[in-house]
Amino acid sequence: MSNKWIKTCNKSDVSEEEPYCFAVSAEKNIAIYKLDEEFFCTDDLCTHGNASLSEGFQDEGIIECPFHGGAFNIRTGEPTSYPCINAIRTYSVKIEGDTIMVAYDGE
């Protein structure tokens, strides 16, 4: 399926300290991060446990899972700390005016 740009939140909804959780469907949330005036997006559900990464602690380019201390690189989705070993999926982001658009293919 080809990527479709979906509207998520406004730039002002996201801060470097508080990632934004956006529901793309009833089952699926994505997390949107601000980093050095740029925006990034990953799945919200940690690849390790049943935790919401947007509830986690963002330390510059790293998001730390709020439950087990695992962590991911926000830009690449690569795991950076145990017990996370599977990368988190990342999504392309573009800005239209004040709106953050995310390339989401519906899967």
């Binding site: 602690f57 730390e64 709020p66």
Partner: peptide, 10 residues
């Protein structure tokens, strides 16, 4: 308050 806890731990 998971997000507060991440800071509280530190």
């Amino acid at each position: 308050r998971a997000r507060d806890m991440a800071v509280a731990r530190k």
